[in-house]
Computed example of a mutant assay.
Amino acid sequence: MSGRTDTDTEPAIAENAEDTEDTAGTGRAGDGEGGEDDGEFAGDARRARWAAAGTGALLALAGLAAALLRATGSAPAAVPAAYALGAAGCAFAGVLGARGRTRRALWLLVAGAMVMALGDQFD
């Protein structure tokens, strides 16, 4: 096999590799320069994690308190069970949110709140 190798592609490959290394941690495609957008994106992600974890913990505590209050009253057994199940879902959503799975945490928070609301309908 004789022929000339094409050496013009090496710089383009090296430039593309540098671009992917700069944007690999952000999860977004960009121009590879870093800069303000990366810091802003990291701040947004941090706020989203804190919001998901805080909301999950708050809803879990509220659901647990409601389950305890309903368990001591004359409500049917399904009511405190629904509150406890919803609170467990919200607590798990808080854990997921703290680990960065904020979309899944949001949907689990919605599902947990819906289970608690459904339990309230049994009363």
Rank of each mutant, 00 (worst) to 15 (best):
S74V: 10
Y83I: 00
G39E: 08
A42D: 14
T72C: 13
A71R: 08
A65Y: 13
A53D: 10
R70G: 05
E40D: 11
A45I: 01
W50H: 13
L64C: 09
D44Y: 11
P80M: 00
D38R: 05
T55S: 11
F41K: 14
A75D: 15
A67K: 04
L61E: 07
A84I: 02
G63L: 07
G54I: 03
R70M: 10
A45Q: 08
L58W: 12
L61S: 05
A57M: 12
G43A: 15
L64A: 11
L61C: 01
W50Q: 15
A51L: 06
G43K: 13
A67I: 06
G43R: 14
G63S: 04
L68M: 12
L69D: 15
L69K: 14
A45S: 10
L59M: 05
A42L: 05
W50E: 15
R47G: 03
R47I: 13
A81D: 06
R70D: 10
L69Y: 13
G63Y: 01
L64P: 08
R46D: 14
P80Y: 03
D38N: 04
E36G: 11
A67P: 02
A75E: 15
P76R: 07
L59E: 03
S74G: 12
L64I: 00
A82Q: 06
L59G: 03
A65T: 13
L64W: 09
A71Q: 10
D44R: 10
L64Y: 09
R49K: 09
E40N: 07
A60F: 04
A78Q: 15
A81S: 02
A78D: 15
L61W: 12
A66G: 04
V79I: 01
Y83E: 06
A42S: 08
G54Y: 06
D38W: 10
A81G: 00
A67T: 05
L59Y: 10
G56T: 02
L68A: 14
R49N: 02
A51N: 00
A82T: 01
A77W: 05
G39C: 03
A51G: 01
A67C: 03
T72I: 15
G63W: 05
A48L: 01
A57I: 11
A77T: 12
G35A: 07
A62D: 08
D44P: 11
A52V: 07
V79E: 01
A78V: 12
L64K: 06
E36R: 02
A62C: 07
Y83T: 01
L58H: 09
T55R: 09
A65F: 13
L69E: 15
G73S: 08
A45V: 03
E36T: 13
A66Q: 08
R47P: 05
A75Q: 12
A67H: 07
A67L: 02
A57K: 13
F41T: 09
A62T: 12
A60S: 02
R49D: 08
D44S: 10
A57T: 11
L58T: 11
L69F: 13
R49A: 05
A67Y: 00
R46L: 12
A62I: 13
A60R: 01
R47C: 00
A62R: 08
A75W: 05
A62H: 05
D38T: 00
A62G: 09
P76S: 01
A60N: 01
R46K: 14
T55F: 06
L58E: 15
L68F: 03
P76D: 07
A51Y: 00
A42P: 03
A45N: 04
G63N: 04
L59R: 02
F41P: 05
